[in-house]
Design a protein around this nucleic acid. Structure first.
Length: 768
DNA sequence: GATTGTGCCCTTTTT
DNA sequence: GGGCACAATC
């Protein structure tokens, strides 16, 4: 017991020991919320709470795995593993499988991912002969997902006047009908999409009191991580399950809510006190991750948001270094500056590549960074983008597995019926879709018992052969373990042989991916060990699929060992930390993005995203922005982000590209964009008219003793330099004009604003 | 029925 | 710039 409580601060200890009743933990970034949660679970188990009665929910598999690992270290692993710990989707999919019959599904239901649902919607549009321009699939997905997350059924969607009015005004009046067909097709396919897992769980708990009763009494203790990211469907599930015991503990940080575009609702945090009036609020405010300067910078930024729960995050670490702001003249140069900076820190401070992370708003920004790192010879790894489970060949093979387990899975059937090629084309597929719509049954049933007359005999035979093959696989799956079945399927369809015909580098990767998938199945099987005897359990394909359909490759591959710089979006970086963090592309219309300038709420979400970015850094934070950038193939000019201005000025130091060697040509480019810079940079280095959280003191600095150096030759003064003037103090050279004795410079002084100086008279000292 | 050409549209995305 | 969907080809 002492083990579990030692090393915790006072509020953490309170969070761990307040086991009964509703508890809300508001945890700042880096305040040890995972520690509080894991120790709490361990503490409960040690206090005699049955692990089977504890449900702990997270959003990612990775977070769940990490928590499980940490709990197992604190308590007897046999007890630890019995806690219901996982993502919302995995825990409730598990419950849905055992209760599937109530809802008209079988326990082998398939989970459709975003791509499957996209294909399905495409089929519906085709069937209804609707234009994909009038009804963009992405828009439909969004609309349907939002409805399901808000627990609005397709029928309610159609009956709701407001919603219908919205769709009518958007010139998309048929969305409701499409929604209905979509659900009908899912149900016919014995399939659920991601949102359905939560939606159907709610239906289950709402309409089947005995089921509700069972789980309310089973899960006496409920813990929820990242509560600020829950949507209405998740909120209501938790509320229902916790209604009897009210031993519910939620952990969140409203300042880190960055998924509202996915339906996450901050109100859930704000409403907690209404739902559980006698709740206990615990604040974890001490940040153990970052230096004071970084914490203060984050605080000064987030202070600009109106909607937030009051808290003061603090750090008792050293003040640390100032936050560096780098200005580049182009996206290419931004990459170079970042790569040079990393190289410099590595050399001067003996750091490893893995001490660095480069974070950006959009994935497309990775390219300039990537190219610069490659030129500099720095190993890096880009996270995000195409996931292993999104690869076509992997999805193809998985589709075979899925249809063996659930033959009514139409999307899988359509995906693989002609892969490898079997002479079954688009026309045939369309006929099958239409027939299944008319007969209101799955395509599988159409092929096996109600072959439509318009399909000619040759094609019909091909279809029957396909069905026979799938049936033979199903027989094998009933007898053999997952790996042997998978291997058999793979060999029989000749997928590897088919892929090997393509010997391009991409083709070789595809073959490797198939091998990797088979390895993953093997690995998964190896992990399934009998708890009591320690023997390996034979697990079937179905069990593997259940796991794989809710898996992303984010979790299995976090090679702690390989020493690379990390590149990822800020969204992907949530929950992670790095000693040195670069946040790049801090420009208006990029970060904050142009689409988020519309409403206050959207802007505040962008600001929270910036807050998340800042708080990833432990020791040093470097921000950068470029004055121009290629976007969608054409050059765009950008102003520095307002977010830079929102950081307390005392915490920032400016670096200039002139301080880097060999940038003469860049200076020329810089002059080119000069008029623009002058326009936006009045007063201080950045726009002065922006409101500030804390006003910066404005006194002309006396010449500090560390300013040494001689009066510069006017010819040496160049745009971008940092200079010192005896009367005006420190400033930045924005531009120069004229030559020789007539040479003038526009200098923006930190405290005195813009000055145009004749260089033969102004005695400037070059600082850097 | 597969392959190449042409216009179109771009965020973030735990599951 | 580039990925994707659909069309025009062979």
């Amino acid at each position: 017991m002492s083990d579990i409580l030692t090393g915790l601060n006072e509020p953490q200890r309170e969070a761990v020991q307040t086991v009964s009743g509703p508890v809300m933990i508001i945890a700042g970034a880096g305040a040890g919320k995972t520690k509080a949660l894991t120790h709490r679970i361990a503490y409960m188990i040690e206090q005699g709470v049955s692990p089977f009665s504890i449900m702990s929910l997270t959003f990612t598999n990775k977070a769940a795995a990490e928590m499980k690992e940490r709990v197992m270290k604190l308590v007897d692993p046999h007890a630890g593993r019995n806690v219901w710990m996982g993502t919302f989707h995995s825990v409730f999919a598990r419950i849905l499988r055992s209760e599937a019959e109530c809802l008209g599904f079988t326990k082998d239901f398939t989970i459709y991912d975003t791509d499957d649902s996209k294909q399905l919607l495409n089929n519906i549009l085709k069937e209804r002969e609707l234009d994909t321009k009038a009804y963009p699939v992405k828009y439909l997905q969004n609309r349907i997902s939002m409805a399901k997350s808000a627990l609005i059924s397709a029928e309610e969607y159609c009956a709701n006047k407001d919603i219908q009015q919205q769709d009518y005004q958007a010139k998309k009046p048929l969305i409701g009908e499409i929604f209905k067909s979509y659900n009908a097709r899912l149900h016919r396919a014995n399939a659920m999409d991601f949102d359905d897992i939560l939606f159907h769980t709610n239906i289950l708990l709402r309409d089947f009191p005995e089921v509700l009763y069972k789980y309310q009494h089973k899960f006496q203790y409920i813990l929820v991580d990242e509560y600020q990211d829950t949507n209405y469907a998740q909120y209501l599930i938790i509320r229902r399950l916790a209604a009897v015991h009210e031993n519910i503990c939620v952990v969140g940080d409203d300042a880190q809510s960055i998924y509202s575009f996915r339906g996450a609702n901050i109100q859930n945090i704000l409403n907690f006190r209404k739902d559980y009036p006698d709740y206990k609020l615990i604040r974890l405010e001490q940040n153990y991750r970052s230096t004071q300067n970084i914490v203060n910078a984050a605080n000064s930024v987030i202070a600009f948001n109106k909607n937030q729960i009051e808290k003061k995050v603090w750090s008792d670490k050293e003040a640390g270094e100032l936050i560096t702001v780098m200005r580049a003249n182009s996206d290419t140069e931004e990459g170079t500056l970042v790569a040079n900076s990393i190289f410099g820190f590595k050399m001067s401070r003996q750091l490893a590549n893995k001490d660095f992370a480069i974070l950006y708003r959009t994935n497309s920004q990775s390219r300039s960074m990537e190219e610069a790192l490659r030129r500099q010879g720095i190993p890096y790894k880009i996270y995000g983008g195409m996931s292993f489970y999104d690869r076509k060949e992997v999805k193809d093979l998985l589709a075979y597995f899925r249809i063996v387990i659930n033959p009514h899975d139409d999307q899988s059937l359509l995906r693989i019926i002609n892969t490898p090629t079997r002479g079954i084309g688009e026309t045939t597929k369309e006929r099958l879709i239409v027939a299944s719509g008319q007969q209101k049954t799955s395509i599988w049933n159409i092929i096996t018992s109600q072959m439509p007359p318009e399909i000619n005999e040759g094609t019909a035979t091909k279809l029957r052969n396909f069905a026979t093959m799938i049936q033979s696989f199903a027989v094998i799956a009933g007898k053999e373990n997952a790996f042997d079945t998978a291997k058999h399927i793979c060999d029989t369809i000749g997928l590897v042989k088919f892929l090997k015909e393509d010997d391009s580098p991409e083709g070789i990767i595809r073959v490797q991916n198939i091998e990797e998938l088979l390895n993953a199945i093997m690995e998964f099987s190896d992990k399934q060990v009998d708890e009591v005897t320690g023997e390996r359990l034979e697990i079937g394909l179905s069990a593997f699929l259940q796991e794989a359909s809710l898996m992303t490759d984010q979790d299995n591959k976090k090679d702690e060992n390989d020493d690379t710089v990390t590149l990822m979006t800020i969204h992907a970086a949530k929950g992670l930390e790095f000693p040195y963090v670069y946040v790049v592309g801090l420009e208006e219309n990029l970060f904050p993005g142009v689409q988020s300038l519309g409403t206050q709420d959207e802007l505040e979400e962008e600001r929270r995203l910036f807050y998340v970015a800042i708080t990833r850094a432990e020791k040093k934070l470097i921000l950068s922005h470029a004055e121009s950038r290629y976007r969608y193939g054409s050059l765009t000019i950008s102003e520095p982000s307002r977010f830079i201005d929102e950081i307390d000025k005392k915490l920032i130091e400016q670096t200039h590209k002139a301080s880097f060697k060999g940038t003469r040509n860049i200076d020329e480019g810089f002059n080119f964009s000069n008029p623009f810079v002058r326009r936006t940079q009045t007063g201080g280095f950045y726009k002065k008219e922006t409101p500030r959280a804390t006003p910066t003191p404005t006194a002309t600095p006396a010449r500090p003793s560390n300013v040494t150096g001689n009066i510069a030759d006017p010819d040496d003064i160049k745009a971008g330099m940092r200079v010192y003037h005896n009367k005006f103090g420190f400033g930045n050279v924005i531009s120069t004009e004229g030559t020789g004795a007539n040479k003038k410079a526009l200098v923006t002084f930190d405290t005195e604003g813009d000055k145009r100086l004749m260089l033969t008279f102004a005695k400037l000292i070059i600082i850097e």
